[in-house]
Design a binder for these strands. Structure first.
Length: 477
DNA sequence: AAAAAAC
């Protein structure tokens, strides 16, 4: 089948062919006719299946007649992340280049005024992440009664991210009479229930991706000692023919640390995670996509859905805690029939997480090795994947500090600490690690400034507090 | 255990 048989307008066909596509993917072939007929669609499809074009193409034609009135968008697309929302906006630009559709991208981290101006001028297509959409709605900047087409994309991911209440609120603001297109990579019962609620008599379309990344991407697993991880990564990048690569870490701060370390070692690298200013996020991703940056160290904000043409390598610097994330991460490469390569670095205690991944993908990840680095076996720890962190210079203690020492609050305690906090704030930040500072900074004295919510105050030691009790749980820092 | 998303 060819695109020309789908009943799309000549303008769309022109734009599609200029983008280099001739044949629709299965989901496009199945969904487009139903979307054109105004039917609701429940699409079970992962990224990389051509899902985006399956709604963008017919929507452009359907919206071609008519004009969005001020603050009254005619269609709404909800996406879980800012990057995905931007990507959908680009798709509308590419395929809508011969139409005069107006579009607004409502995402957080960018100025309200530009977005409000666009809304005031009237938009045909509104693409948004839930938070900013509700914010603008709350400010009276959007009226949703003209929305005739709603797209909920990546529903399972929105569920994971706790967005479903927001999505339900948004849908509650839309007219009942509308067309709804609902996409999700998986259909767990909660998602199905949600779909039943949002959709009426939908056409159900399920496409299994032609081949899952686990099959198209050539994968390797390297088990190294924790201290060797960076060196292992450096060697891998140097020895592989890396055109461009995503490097995933589990934590945002590790993304920063690793990208700085790579930069120090002369690699062409940038960082991407959700704590960065939006302007830098956008610019960084754009430069990476353009090939101006070769390596991108990223959190899982980049794990799903991002379409980076011709990405040669994915490195998992950390083993993801959720096995599905592994599939999403490596799925950034090996797309559109191209060859992709992935390497995952594991430390011995990642054994459990690794076997969860192997169970999910139904195969063993081939073990690789790096010249000059010691091979380490995975280590199965009964009852847990991770050893408790050790305190230097002291044998692991039998959880004295984790005993629940009840916090005894005196009546004058709380108001005082609240009042005293600001003036000591800066100082506390610097001396927050009593081990490094060579002594306890917290005493049992209620005059000592403390943070609200502290539960680790010790009783029964008078003014002296043993250092091990002064260690604060991470979340109070 | 962490990431994402509103200011």
């Amino acid at each position: 089948m060819a695109f020309s048989e789908l009943g799309l307008s000549p303008e769309i066909l022109q734009a599609v062919s200029e983008a280099g596509y001739t044949t629709p993917t299965p989901i496009q072939e199945q969904a487009i006719p139903h979307v054109q007929l105004g039917r609701d669609v429940l699409g079970c499809a992962q990224t990389g299946t051509g899902k985006t074009a399956s709604f963008v193409l017919p929507m452009i034609d359907m919206l071609a007649a008519g004009r969005g009135r001020a603050r009254m968008p005619r269609s709404l697309i909800i996406e879980p992340t800012r990057e995905l929302a931007s990507q959908i906006a680009s798709a509308f630009e590419v395929y809508g280049k011969y139409h005069r559709l107006t579009m607004a991208l409502l995402i957080g981290g960018e100025s309200f005024t530009d977005q409000e101006k666009k809304l005031d001028r009237g938009v045909d297509v509104l693409i948004a992440t839930p938070g900013r959409l509700l914010d603008l709605y709350g400010r009276g900047k959007i009226l949703l009664q003209d929305v005739r087409i709603l797209v909920i994309d990546e529903a399972d991911r929105m569920l994971d991210m706790g967005f479903i209440p927001d999505v339900e609120r948004i849908v509650g603001l839309l007219p009942k009479e509308r067309q709804t297109l609902f996409f999700s990579a998986t259909m767990p019962p909660e998602i199905k229930r949600l779909a039943d609620f949002f959709l009426s008599d939908p056409k159900e379309i399920a496409v299994t991706p032609p081949a899952s990344p686990a099959e198209t991407v050539k994968q390797s697993l390297l088990v190294v000692g924790p201290a060797d991880k960076r060196e292992a990564l450096f060697r891998l990048i140097r020895s592989e023919d890396v055109k461009n690569a995503l490097i995933f870490c589990n934590r945002k701060r590790d993304v920063d640390l690793l990208s700085r370390s790579l930069a120090r070692h002369g690699f062409d690298v940038a960082a991407l995670h959700g704590d960065m200013a939006q302007a830098r996020r956008t610019l960084t991703l754009e430069r990476f996509k353009n090939g101006e940056i070769r390596l991108l160290a990223a959190s899982d904000v980049a794990a799903r859905g991002l379409d980076i043409a011709g990405l040669s390598h994915v490195f998992c610097f950390d083993v993801p805690h959720h096995a599905e994330d592994y599939v999403h991460r490596i799925g950034r490469t090996g797309r559109a029939g191209r060859e992709g390569r992935s390497f995952m670095l594991a430390v011995p205690e990642d054994a459990k997480a690794v076997s969860a991944i192997e169970k999910l993908i139904g195969r063993e990840i081939p073990r690789g090795r790096i010249d000059g680095l010691a091979e380490t076996p995975l280590e199965f720890v009964p009852g847990g994947s991770r050893l408790p962190p050790r305190v230097e210079g002291r044998p692991p203690r039998k959880s004295f500090s984790s005993q629940n020492v009840p916090r005894q609050t005196t009546s004058q305690d709380i108001p005082r600490q609240a009042k005293r906090r600001p003036e000591n704030e800066g100082q506390r930040e610097k001396t927050s690690d009593p081990r490094r500072e060579g002594g306890p900074t917290i005493t049992g004295n209620p005059q000592t400034p403390r943070r609200n919510g502290d539960t680790d105050a010790a009783v029964g030691f008078g003014d002296h507090l043993p250092a091990f009790l002064a260690r604060r749980p991470k979340h109070t820092l």
